[in-house]
Design a protein around this nucleic acid. Structure first.
Lengths: 233, 233
DNA sequence: GGGGCTTGAATTAGTCGTACCTAATGGGTT
DNA sequence: AACCCATTAGGTACGACTAATTCAAGCCCC
């Protein structure tokens, strides 16, 4: 997964990016290109390229005679996959996980509804396959195998929605699900009700029942919210 | 709005970015850094920084001995505000507008529901103010004034949701609404029903009625979908 | 003779260092 | 208070060198 940073500037980013998103340099902090170049033992050219990338993510702003200032958190491009990964690896991982789960709860039901309308035969088949895979790994502490099929399932739904914006959230959902299995407490087998819901979503999509697919997926994401104690009583 | 590209690399991006997103260089096309530097009459350093930014947006991939290859559309960071702006300025503006409107229809109702739970007194006041402003400009071809309050309204809702991912979509919604007023056919006064719905949403949020706020906002976004002939019969 | 492997030359991005330019900033002068 | 100038840190340009791939010619072994 972690691509070891292609090129020197990439390696710098993999240290500097997480540091900034972790709040190690609070908003308003001023960095100097030359100093950074020295610290990371790279040329100014390389450091400048790294700064340009951070700038395109709206993490920092570069101004003459001032330096590279860290922008307030509210201006960050929080949808940038790299920023998401950095934040998930940092201290506010729980907070980030909650935000993303809420996002899922908004997107995925609608995506499932659209998928019921637009999914191809291949996608339907793949979906059923994923659901069956989840069932097969739902008992006996086969969490890894379960996770693989769970991620694949949601990815297919998002792709089948036919909406490019939804499709691009596949990686985000994958990160959230993976994070839940690996870092959060999840020793027990997955909730049988959730497994059933996935199977039923696959059925609904195959049947072209958009309303049912949306409703069932909403139940799935509601369950995910409850796991994080985000209730709506 | 358009910041004329801070720095030379920014100016290059404002030409090269739209060109790529417009499909002028189809996916798989190979560009060479030196050639680009010549064409734009900038140094290789500047061009490299521009390429780095495009790379961070996953628009292109830079490889040795090959050059800078345009990545397939499915891999682009379509949530990057700059990419969104470039695409909205290009040929597939209608397609992009549809994708974003569908995204709105998923996000905004949920955001409104959360806003009803989390909105501060100030935000409630601001919301009512926006709604009243919309009413005041809803008749007599005051489309510009209406737009300003409409944009502000949705921005407040997204911010009041308390979810950072939702809040960051304020700019996107603004682009969509602005685009609808300026570029699409919209000579007539806004739909009175839509205006009423906004007022009611403000009321529901103020009353803390999450279910009602969500439902009303869903009606608003459904209306937006229908304007673009995205139906669910 | 053909398929697969090795080797080497060509190519293009990657890195570095230097030199100089530009523009904000802050302080000092009038 | 208005102005000017020295300082400072980023912005741009250029040139040299490095390193990683690709491609193809050549080779060996079937």
């Amino acid at each position: 997964m972690s691509t070891t940073g292609r090129g020197l500037h990439g390696q710098v980013l993999e240290t500097l990016g997480p540091a900034i998103t972790a709040g190690e340099y609070p908003p308003g902090s001023v960095l100097r290109t030359d100093e950074l170049a020295q610290r990371f033992d790279v040329s100014r050219s390389v450091m400048r390229e790294a700064v340009r990338v951070l700038e395109s993510m709206h993490l920092v702003e570069s101004r003459r005679r001032v330096g590279v200032t860290v922008r307030p958190k509210a201006e960050w491009n929080v949808y940038d996959p790299q920023v998401i990964r950095w934040r998930l690896a940092g201290a506010d991982r729980p907070h980030q996980l909650r935000s993303l789960t809420v996002l899922r709860s908004a997107i995925e039901p609608v995506a499932a509804g659209l998928a019921a309308k637009h999914a191809t035969a291949d996608q339907c088949a793949e979906l059923t396959e994923c659901a069956l895979g989840m069932v097969a790994h739902s008992r006996g502490h086969q969490l890894e195998g379960y996770l693989v099929h769970d991620v694949a399932f949601h990815r297919v739904v998002l792709n089948a929605s036919g909406n490019e914006m939804f499709a691009r959230l596949g990686d985000v959902v994958a990160e959230v699900l993976t994070g839940r299995t690996h870092h959060e407490i999840m020793f027990e087998d997955p909730d049988p009700a959730a497994v059933t819901l996935h199977v039923q979503v696959a059925e609904a999509v195959r049947a072209g029942d958009a309303v049912r697919a949306e409703h069932l997926t909403r139940e799935i994401t509601m369950g995910a919210l409850q796991e994080l104690d985000i209730l709506a009583p």
